[in-house]
């Protein structure tokens, strides 16, 4: 299940490759917030998945459809309700959770629609972010999170610890979890959550409903 993925177009995005490695060949996949389709394209080419996407920006959607991807214009906050239970093997929310209005409801939909949900997000518990608030007293702006507080689309940041707590509350099971360090490299599995929460810049979780 964790065969290596050919590093091609998406080579620069380690988080995408990590997601791809979590996905079984030939699976039915829904990518929520699929952007210009880079992950979907990777999954179709390397994992031979039956892939679908939802994307908010019309430019992103048009680009995806031009590439031959099955993508619809839609909003994770409002349009997931249309999808039937267990319609997909995996539902992916890649770097989109923090931009949703109701993240908990979105995750509930992911767990309902997919047998597995894969969620990746920037960790707001990273020490650089903590230190910007702690020592400069300013809202953090980093390389990966380059928006100022007044123009950011990211309205619901969380830390790795927050996310783990939410999965507990929602009675979801964490099947896999990976944190990426500053260089985008996966951190050692054996480290405790607190260390990931401090040094992980990004996290990728695979969840399923129920415990």
């Amino acid at each position: 299940m964790t065969e290596p993925v050919n590093h091609t177009a998406a080579a620069a995005r380690v988080d995408l490759l990590l997601v791809a490695e979590m996905i079984e060949r030939g699976a039915r996949v829904l990518d929520v917030g699929c952007g210009d389709g880079i992950l979907l394209d990777l999954l179709i080419r390397t994992r031979e998945v039956d892939g679908r996407g939802i994307e908010l920006s019309q430019a992103g959607v048009n680009g995806c459809v031009t590439k031959g991807l099955s993508v619809v214009q839609g909003d994770a906050d409002t349009d997931l309700a249309d999808y039937p239970d267990d319609g997909f093997d995996y539902v992916i929310l890649s770097q989109t959770l923090q931009a949703t209005r109701r993240p908990r409801e979105v995750i509930e939909h992911l767990l309902r629609i997919g047998r597995r949900a894969i969620v990746s997000f920037p960790n707001f518990g990273h020490w650089r972010i903590r230190s910007q608030i702690a020592f400069q007293g300013r809202m953090p702006v980093t390389k990966n999170l380059s928006y100022a507080w007044y123009n950011t689309p990211n309205i619901h940041f969380c830390t790795i610890a927050d996310f783990v707590a939410l999965t507990d509350e929602m009675d979801a099971t964490i099947e896999k979890a990976v944190a990426l360090d500053r260089n985008g490299q996966p951190m050692r599995m054996t480290l405790p959550w607190a260390v990931w929460n401090l040094f992980g810049e990004q996290a990728v979780f695979m969840l399923r409903r129920g415990s």
Binding site: D50, R52, V61, N62, V65, L69, S70, Q73, D79, D82
Partner: peptide, 18 residues
């Protein structure tokens, strides 16, 4: 139409053209 197709689990692309 797209909502119905999604609910039916169909493969669908949708673009709104400016």
């Amino acid at each position: 139409i797209v909502h119905a197709l999604n609910a039916a689990g169909a493969s669908v692309s949708f673009v709104e053209i400016e």
